[in-house]
Design a protein around this nucleic acid. Sequence first.
RNA 1: GGGCGCUUAGCUCAGUUGGUAGAGCAACUCUUUUACACAGAGAAGGUCAGGGGUUCGAAUCCCUUAGCGCCCACCA
Length: 749
Amino acid sequence: MVPDKFLKPYSHTDTEKRIYSAWEESGLFNPDVCVEKGVAAPDAPSFSIVLPPPNVTGTLHTGHALGTTIEDIVVRYHRMKGDKTLWVPGTDHAAIATQSKVEKMLEKEGVKKRDLGREAFLERVNQFAQESHDTIVGQIRRMGSSIDWSREAFTLDEVRTKAVRTAFVRMYEDGLIYRGDRIVNWDSKLQTTVSDDEVDWKEEKTPFYYLKYGPFTIATARPETKFGDKYVVMHPDDARYAKYKHGDTLALEWINGPITATVIKDSVIDMEFGTGVMTITPWHDTVDFDIALRHKLDKEQIIDTFGKLLPIAGDFAGMQIKKAREAIVAKLTEKGLVEKIDENYIHRIAINSRGEGAIEPQILRQWFIDVNKPFILKHSNIPSIKSGSETTLKSIMRAGVEHKAINVLPDRFEKVYYHWIDNLRDWCISRQIWYGHRIPVWYRNQNQESGVMNQEEVYVGTEAPEGSDWVQDEDTLDTWFSSGLWTFSTLGWPYSAETATKGKPGPENDFANFHPTNLLETGYDILFFWVARMILMTGYLLGEVPFNTVYLHGLVRDEKGQKMSKSIGNSVDPLDVIDAHGADALRMALVVAVGPGNDSNLSDDKIKAYKKFANKIWNITRFVLEKTNEVPERPSLTDADITRINELNALIQEITEDLEKYRLYLASEKLYHYVWHTLADVIIEERKVILEGSDETAKVSAQWTLRTILRTSLALLHPFMPFITEDIWSDVKGSDDPMLMIMSWPRQI
RNA sequence: GGGCGCUUAGCUCAGUUGGUAGAGCAACUCUUUUACACAGAGAAGGUCAGGGGUUCGAAUCCCUUAGCGCCCACCA
């Protein structure tokens, strides 16, 4: 008998929500339930993934859809294989991104954050974050993600706060977190620092001024920063300036009158560029800052944190730098200090990638993580770093990847990763925003005058110190500090990390059972932001690698290959696609033939192709149910059927291997091809005659073969297209078989 | 300045270790009491960017040139 539903085309809308509810009600997304119900053996290998926590800044896009699809495929495969499989969900508070989103919303209402005050503002952010969270969680469900909702986490919840503070205190005590006056990227619009990785560079045509500086000519695109320039730097080997010695002083006329300049010789200077001489502005330029550090030079602030000139600028003090430039150039011209102006110079200006604000380097007192400082790593499972040996955070980041404790897919990103480590500066972790983890540092007798520290007491701890006169640091932590802990802060660290017992069920044992995680799947665009920071944090705090494999997916572009963006209006909302064509179709369209690290174009045609494929599977099932009877025992098979079964066995082996090696793009394509062009076009067509014929032996052989191939195909396809395969399964499964989701992965028949 | 990727059928892209080129869409012919027209059968379409090399054999490995794209550095 064929159920009526097969008499019309497959309808995902009727099916997907019902199936997801059934999965969720079964509780089988939870590995403990799987063990309890005998799906996974108590001593089975474990397999774990954390969901890269989406930012609570609104809704998920197709990149998230791709990520959750890949993760779910792998998770479903391992669950069917019988592993104790855990996929941990959660969301990221995304500090600066979320705060600026809410600020923009408030702006439209005419409300300023300062007027609301910290507490009321945070309430508003939390409300928004909650709404975003609810939307996101709904979207993840619609994708079919078999994720353990009972373990859901948030980077800013109580448990994660404890983890963040514990990590901070430890690093502080080891001297790896320090407070210092160093050059940072200052966003004067958002009034906060941002990390080096969050700075974007934009090209801009700007006049390039050649200015007379005593006997020298110096060149600059930013004359408004030059007031305090009293060091003139040249290469030690530059013959043109051989007569000037390091440390020589000379009197010269500058913007606001006569000054004394000091000659500095430093090999950082490019003799070929410009005149081979430059003056330095250590307070507002990274390279200059380094030169000043090397030669112990004075540093003076020229521009304040609001982008206005300070009293050092004399007549120009208080002016916005952009407006000041013209006036300054006029004065320089009047004084005869302008030698020439190149009007076609291309200059690069720094922009905050998260908020469009211009970045002005500033020397500010901030909290930093020292990536080069040697320390003793007490316990280490990281290859090449022995327990109790001296190492650095940079070495930790390199070692895991270099010695293959972490495999990166595709491996070409390893090179990119090393290069990033080599260029890494100390990580500025303090932010002057309100939303986020407040820095767990308290001060007493804080001296209001900047630069005077001698009276101040500092307390660093996971809880506020006793006594009412302690004031907590106003700043919050870079959001990546908390996401860096994600692979273990979601598994019970630091609460139950010590007591967790391997082999025992329950979240309190997660740390022992599921860390290190097996796979970290994310976009290649956050290799530095996140992946590197997780390796750093895990290495330092646990002496482990956070995961064994990193699968980096590419960008999902529109059908023309353009980057999706809200301003262009070409964004594809995964929910719209799911409504129109089904989650299974979307999943296949995202995964087939898209290897790791490669960008892909998502077209409506591609999605439709897999919607048709779903219908094809549907009709194959209809045929098999209509034309065959269940054959309980394996009959003696015809040679033709044996050949088909052998072919299926080969497919099982190939798909299994592909999944083990994370070649989802190949496995999905092969399955598509097999089901449509082998099973439907060839096997079914060939068997039609036999099923109508009178050879009973051949008929029974064909019936058993067709049903076996269908069932096996559904199982192989399940990780990729979980909804339709689960739905069909209820009509073709054996009477003792459980849901397809927990059927054991096909073995050789 | 340094690094990486891409260039395969009209379009979008696969091609895992080198063994006579594949898919989707589009276009062409035929087929509708056929499991499925969200389909089937058939035909058509490529000197795998150019050049050189290794090999019995190269889309695949090496060198080189060109075009496109990305990442990092940040030259004042």
